[in-house]
Design a protein around this nucleic acid. Structure first.
Length: 262
DNA sequence: AAGAGCAACAACCGCTCCTTG
DNA sequence: TCAAGGAGCGGTTGTTGCTCT
């Protein structure tokens, strides 16, 4: 008796997502949020497994995604973080609001790795470091009890906004610039889908969505009325996902790293 | 113009971790 | 405490589009 598959694969569609599927997924999440990924495809009328929907949303459809090529500064930071954290892409990605672990992983494998090799740097150096670090840690880890972890979390909570920068500061001007204007699912057209599927390859720091009309997330599916709602990306994320938790984990990791090295 | 080779990235797979009953 | 189910993560593969010959 092996492990149960995550979903009943019979009759499920695979491969690239179509415009209609994207529209359905966005539509569903806007109106219902995410309670259980497994149920999403069923309720949204998609012939996909929940995992596939989750991935599509997180890596592609999420409105707070930053599109376009990674800057040199970002690349540099990735290299630094990779040296510290190894292939823990989600941890690394949490340092880059709007970037996904998949995106960073791909960038590492296709671009950075090669550059480092050309420079004569071992891109796997982190593995040696992590190995040594693990050996060095050993019993040290046991020094952290639950109480100290809680304390650490509190300290980190206070420092969080400062370290994460303006993108995460809801009151900052940058945030206003980063407003997810709106999305009208009914007017999700071929053009929109093209835009979504092309922006990742063109150099654009614009928002993931820039649709002219708007949607009321509380309205029923297919409602074509357009109540003007200034729906910020952060509100969006708060409403449908718990992505911010990533930052908490990330901060704790950083703290452990600092403590270890002091 | 065609096709071979390559790079980039979206998507899948299988495993681990976490939560819940 | 344990088992089951769901979510998340990292490695890998498949597809697409670009460049070079």
């Amino acid at each position: 008796m092996g492990r149960q598959p995550c979903c009943d694969r019979v009759g499920l569609k695979r491969g690239p997502w179509t415009m209609e599927e994207d529209r359905r997924l966005i539509d569903f999440i806007i109106n219902n949020g995410i309670q259980c990924w497994r149920m999403v495809p069923k309720l949204a009328g998609l012939l996909r497994c929940g995992k596939s929907c989750r991935l599509r949303w997180i890596n592609y459809l999420r409105p707070d995604l930053k599109r376009g090529a990674l800057s040199e500064a970002e690349e540099k930071q990735i290299i630094e973080l990779h040296a510290r954290l190894g292939n823990r892409w989600s941890k690394i990605a949490s340092h880059f609001p709007g970037r996904t672990d998949n995106e960073i992983k791909n960038h590492w494998n296709t671009g950075i790795k090669k550059k480092l090799k050309l420079l004569g740097v071992d891109p796997n150096a982190d593995k040696h470091i992590m190995k040594e670090k693990k050996q060095h840690q050993g019993a040290k880890n046991e020094q952290f009890d639950i109480a100290s972890m809680n304390e650490n979390t509190q300290v980190l909570d206070c420092a969080k906004t400062d370290e994460l920068g303006p993108e995460n500061d809801m009151n900052s001007k940058n945030h206003d610039d980063y407003v997810y204007k709106s999305l009208d699912v009914d007017s999700f057209t071929n053009k929109d889908h093209e835009y979504l599927t092309s922006t990742s390859r063109c150099d654009s720091n614009s928002l993931s969505f820039e649709h002219s009309s708007s949607i009321d997330p509380n309205s029923s599916i297919g409602g074509s009325s357009s109540v003007e709602v200034d729906y910020s990306s952060q509100q969006w994320v708060d409403g449908v996902d718990s992505l911010l938790l990533w930052d908490c984990f990330n901060q704790q990791d950083d703290l452990f790293f600092l403590l270890e090295n002091n």
